[in-house]
Amino acid sequence: MMKKRVLITGAAGFLGSHLCDKFINEGYKVIGMDNLITGDLKNLEHLFPNPDFEFYHHDITKYIHISGQLDYILHFASPASPIDYLKIPIQTLKVGAMGTHNCLGLAKDKKARMLVASTSEVYGDPLVHPQTEEYWGNVNPVGPRGVYDEAKRYMESITMAYHSFHQVDTRIVRIFNTYGPRMRLNDGRALPAFIGQALRGEDITVFGDGSQTRSFCFVADLIEGIYRLLLSDYPLPVNIGNPNEISLKDFAEEVLALTGNRVKIIYKPLPVDDPKQRQPDITKAKNLLDWEPKVSRKEGLAITYDYFKNLPPEEWHKQPKEFISNK
C-alpha cells in the first residue's frame, strides 16, 4: 500500500519540526518546506537520513511546485514570536496572505486536505473569557501586533473561502501558548525568556504587573490535537491548548523554583496591545476529537528546562538573528 504524502510548511520551526516527527512516526512520507528566516535546520537534521523525509528550501510566498501525489498540507510557515514579527512585519503579512493563498492553490490542484495554523491571537486582547471559537475577538489592526493578528485572521478567511467556493477540504486550528524542546531561547516569548534569563543568572523580566494570564500547553499534547483535527471531518476553527491558566508572575516564580536560581523578578511596562487574559475553551476539541492535554505543567516544564540546560552555553547568550530587509 502506497504511503500517504504530506507537505509541512515552516518545517524547520518549533512546531513544524515536531509535526514532521509525528507524521514520520505515523508512517507518512513527509516533505518539509522552510525558507529558514526563523527556522533552524538543526531541528530537522535527525530526519535527513530517513528515506521518507525530503526537505525543500523555499519561500512559500513564491509559487509552490510539488511533483507527484500529495494527500495533506499543513501550513505552519509564519513568524510566531513578538521579536520576529515586530522585526519582519511585511514578511509576516505576506506569509499569512500570499503564502496561504499559494498553499490553498496547491491543495486545490492536488485535491489535498489542508490544515492551517491559526492562533489565539485572532482573539486579540479578549473581552470574553475563556475564549470560545464563536468569539470574534478584540483586535487592533493598526497596532504593532496587528501584522500577526490580522495575517492569521485573513488566513482563516481565505481558507474558508476556498472551502466554500472551491470545495477544498480544509481544517483550521487555533493554537494557544505552547512550549517544549526546540523553542528558541531568544524568541521573546515568556517561557524561553524566563528560562534563558535564569540560565544566564539574570533577573527575570515580567512585563506589566504580572497579573496577566496565559495557558501553556506542552508541545506533544498540541501535536496530537492537530493530528486528530486533520483527520477529523470538521472544517471550522478548533481551539487546541491547555485551559490550565496561570498569571505570568506565578509562572515566573515556578520557573525560578525549577531552576533553583536566586535571581529576582523585575517588572517593566506592558507592551502595546498585550493580551491581559488567555485561556482556551476546549469543549469542541474534547467533543469532536476526544482530545485534551495530558502533560502537566510541572512535567512539561521539567522536560523543557532539561532541554535548554543541555544546550551549549553559547546558545544561552545568542542574540536574535538579523533578518533580511522587509521587501
Rank of each mutant, 00 (worst) to 15 (best):
M2G: 07
K3Q: 13
V6D: 03
T9I: 01
G10F: 01
G10T: 03
G13A: 13
G16N: 03
C20D: 05
C20E: 03
D21F: 07
G27V: 07
N35K: 12
I37T: 07
I37F: 08
I37H: 05
E54A: 04
Y56L: 14
I64Q: 11
I66A: 11
L70S: 06
Y72S: 00
D84F: 02
I88C: 07
L93S: 14
L104A: 06
A112L: 02
S120I: 02
P130Y: 13
N140L: 09
E150Y: 09
Y154N: 03
M155H: 03
M155Q: 01
A161Y: 12
S164N: 08
N177L: 13
R184Q: 12
L185F: 11
I195G: 02
G196V: 11
D203T: 07
G210H: 00
S211Q: 10
S215C: 13
D221T: 12
D221Y: 07
I223W: 12
G225I: 05
N239E: 07
K249S: 05
K249W: 06
L258H: 10
T259R: 02
G260Q: 15
V263P: 06
Y267V: 13
L270A: 00
Q279K: 13
D281I: 05
K286F: 04
N287Q: 15
A302K: 09
K309N: 15
P320W: 09
E322A: 11
